[in-house]
Amino acid sequence: MVHKKDIRILAFESSCDETSTSVVKNGREVESLIVATQIKSHQRFGGVVPEVASRHHIEVITQITKEALSEAKVTWNDIDAIAVTYGPGLVGALLIGVSAAKAASMATGIPLIGVDHIMGHIMAAQLKEEITYPALALQVSGGHTEIVLLKDPTHFEIVGDTRDDAAGEAYDKIGRVLGVNYPAGKTIDEWAHQGKDTFDFPRAMIKEEDYDFSFSGLKSAFINTYHHAEQINQKLNKYDLAASFQAAVIDVLATKTIRAIKQYQPQTFIMGGGVAANHGLRDRMNQEIKNLPQNMRLKVILPELKLCGDNAAMIGAAAYNLYQEGKFADLTLDADASLELPYASEMLQ
């Protein structure tokens, strides 16, 4: 029997307010994961301040690199590739990871792989279970709301996208109105479970044929309802407000995703991104998929909760697939703040 050599990747992620490093074996096994979060810092400002984020990233970058290696009980000699998120994200923040990964590659001679952050989020699923292709992913976070078709482990196409706010962004904005500290998703999710959908907020674009989303109108409807009540000294039930908001978000996400599953008939359904940790959304998607006709049943992979947010392990997982196809970067690799997965041809018409 030929012994297949293990492939170990050291990955960096610094696209927003988490600085993270990880050693991932064979794209499936997390041997170490270090996440330094700056949430406490940005809570002072009510949201992520890019310059502050960049300053924090550089403070920890060398330490967490050493920690990722030592926690995995490996040295640079055991590493086959160095991977880094090069976009999308905050450019100054991305540049810390990119500069660090390139310097590490130069200092060690280990090849470099640039990874799309969104591809990384989706590949958090690969750390839980093997993905059967084609697959369909619902990617929902503070920066993105997309339905992505995975033709194979490295060829992804966007089939639906938000036209304005990302779902997670809408959570943070209505959270601010309710006095919930950023990031608001977790608290709103908890409140939603204690309330009822009594406000009947708009479900934007739910009937449109395409797979696009819009959450800006919902956010405005919520804020108007809240402020109007305030003006007439009426106290609204925050649990019902949260439940109504969350129901509107989830209704649209679930309806459009199920419709996309019916059209594309993937073998696997994946969720990724910070909002993939939302219990309401996870339960609803599981339920909807159970209700699909027998011949459309598919594998469902919802990543572990701690791998839904930004982390380097997911970057290591995605990088393994790129490694297998020899897709390496060189020293000219640069941060690309507005990097996008390609859009499916039908979306470009």
Binding site: R55, I58, T62, G92, S99, A103, A107
Partner: peptide, 19 residues
């Protein structure tokens, strides 16, 4: 330039730390 400084400083930090 804040961004510029971080590119150079990150690079030498990593070089020195690894080597």
């Amino acid at each position: 330039s804040y961004t510029g400084l971080r590119i150079g400083v990150t690079t030498v930090k990593m070089f020195a730390s690894i080597l």
